[in-house]
Nucleic acid binder design. Sequence first.
DNA 1: GAAGATATGTTATATTATATCAACCCTTCA
DNA 2: TGAAGGGTTGATATAATATAACATATCTTC
Lengths: 157, 157
Amino acid sequence: MPLGFEHHNHSACISDTLQRAEVHCREANLNFTPVRRRALEILLQEHRALGAYDLLTELAASGMGKQPPVAYRALDFLVSAGFAHKIERLNAYIACSHLGSDHAPAFLICRNCNAINEANAELANGRLGDAARAAGFQIERTVVEALGLCPACQDAP
Amino acid sequence: MPLGFEHHNHSACISDTLQRAEVHCREANLNFTPVRRRALEILLQEHRALGAYDLLTELAASGMGKQPPVAYRALDFLVSAGFAHKIERLNAYIACSHLGSDHAPAFLICRNCNAINEANAELANGRLGDAARAAGFQIERTVVEALGLCPACQDAP
DNA sequence: GAAGATATGTTATATTATATCAACCCTTCA
DNA sequence: TGAAGGGTTGATATAATATAACATATCTTC
C-alpha cells in the first residue's frame, strides 16, 4: 500500500493513527464521535485525497447520514483537530501523515496518479516567512502544494 | 488604491500592464482577443481576487457573453499566459503583479479584508524543493498561500 | 427536570466548474 | 475560389463542491 510515494504496513498504520487520535481527543477534551472516527478511518483506509462526496458515500454506506453536511462537518472537525488536511488544489481531503506533531504541512501532488506525499516543511521559517516579515504580514496558516510527477510516473510516462 | 498592502498609481499600473501583455502576446504569438483583454482589464481594475462569476458579471456588462464558460475560458487563457493567478484557497483569480518575469508566485492573503500581496518566492529552491528532491518528485507548479492578517488589520481588529 | 451546549440528520439552495454543440472568423492551400 | 481545419465565441445543460437553516436527539450542569 502506498503512503505518499512509499509503501508501508497499512493496517497497523490505520489502527495506530486512530489510537493516537483517540488519545489526543481525550487529552484535548474533543468529542471523537462515531461519525468523526469513521470518517478518519475511511480517509486512512484510502490513504489518498478523497472528495467530500466520496467520503459521504462511505459514511452513508456505514449507516451514517446521507446528506452533504454530514461529510463536511466531519471534515471540519478532522481538519481543525489536525487529523486531516484539505488539498486546495484538488478540493479534496487527506488524513494527516504526521499526526501529533504541530506542523505546517506541504504536499507533493502527482498530476498523473494523484498520489500525495505530505512533506513537513516549516515554510513560515523559509522564504515565505521572509516575504511575510518584509510585508508586516502575520501568518496563521499556510497552503503549500507542489504539482508535478512522482518517481513512479516519471519512469513510466 | 491598494496593491497588496501598499498603495500605487492605479491607472498607470493598468495601462502599463495591458501594454506589456499586448507586447508579450505579439511576441509569443498568442491571440489577445477583446474578451481576454477586457478580462485582464477588469482584474487589474479590481486589483483583488475576483470570483469567476464576478468577472462574468463584468464581462456581460461590457457586452460580452453571459454564460460561465465565457469567464472560465478567459481565465484559462490569462492563467496559462501568466497574466493572472488562481488563489486556490479562495477559488478566485487575481491579475499577476510581476507580469513578464517567469516566477513561482506566493501569496499573502488577509483573512480579514481579503487583500492579497503577491510575493515572489522561488519556493522550489527552498525547503519545498529539498523535500521534493528527497522524494524524487519533479515539481512543475507550486501553490503557495499564507493566510493571516495584513498590517492594517493587525492594527485595527 | 429545565436550560444550555453540542452533535446529528434533513431539506433546500448557493457557489464553482465543465461537457457539448452551433456559429463565426480566420488562414491555408488545392 | 472555396473547401478544410484551427481557434474563438456564445449558449444550453449539467456536474461537482459547499453552506444555510431547521428539527431532533443527547449530554451536561445546575
